[in-house]
Design a protein around this nucleic acid. Sequence first.
DNA 1: TGACAGGAAAATA
DNA 2: TATTTTCCTGTC
Length: 281
Amino acid sequence: MQNNIFFLNANEPFSLAKTLNCGQTFRFEIVNGRYFYPFKNTLLEIYESNKDLTVETHGDDLQEREIRNLFGLNHDVASINTYIECRAPMLHEIIEASKGLRIMRMLPYETTLSFIFSIQTSIPIIRKRLNLLGEMAGDYVTLGRRKHYLFPKSTALKKIQESDIKLLHLGFRERFVKEFIENYDEQFFDKLSNKSFDEKRKALLTIKGVGEKVAQCVLLFGFGELSAFPVDVWIDRAMQALLGLKGSTKKLTDEGRKLFGDYAGYAQEYIYYFIRVFGLS
DNA sequence: TGACAGGAAAATA
DNA sequence: TATTTTCCTGTC
């Protein structure tokens, strides 16, 4: 088994805790103060040492560039923050409180399936069901005595029995998940990656179980489209409280993208992080 | 233990 | 086209 170590210089603001806890990703674990995160065919072990971020891979080799991209360390957050604050000075306090949070760049296939799981569901339940799905598909990395399940490939998911899918207790989401597993694979999303924002969005909306909110999540976290602006109940409430805006999800999505421009996704995650930690005053 | 939390699709106007 | 209703599990 390959095992390489990267020391990522984090002299720019970076907070692993904020990045992993802001609702963009679900499947990480903390064991003895170290973070474990499955990515591609590798389990990443991540910890902060001195001012560096140390990342060990357990499984397939990764390029340092892939890890930097995964955690948004390639984003010029100083410029992004200035850009957002110029357009929306009322976010000053929220931007300050959120420093270190990065938008991750994950894999579109797993991002889409994960956010179909997220429909009308709280984060701990999403995590639990995704972990169970990972166990059913069976791909894992052993570390010490512990098995860490990777996110399943489409080929493994297609082999899961219908009776096992039932055990996930997906309720009305079950038919979305079954259709997704049956009809889509990683290549579908690879083919989309060179298309425009609007073309990707339109294609995502044809998937059963993907509406405006999930599509914006996939654009933002799966395709790196930093102008995407997912509107969930929290952002809905925040837009009314902070900006006096209300309306349908589609309308608020458009308003957010217009207001925050090229980096609406960062503005959205900052707002989400802030109100989940500090509430709406 | 019933109220509540959480988005997409289908139904309806 | 825009608004309302229905769907289901888990938590407290």
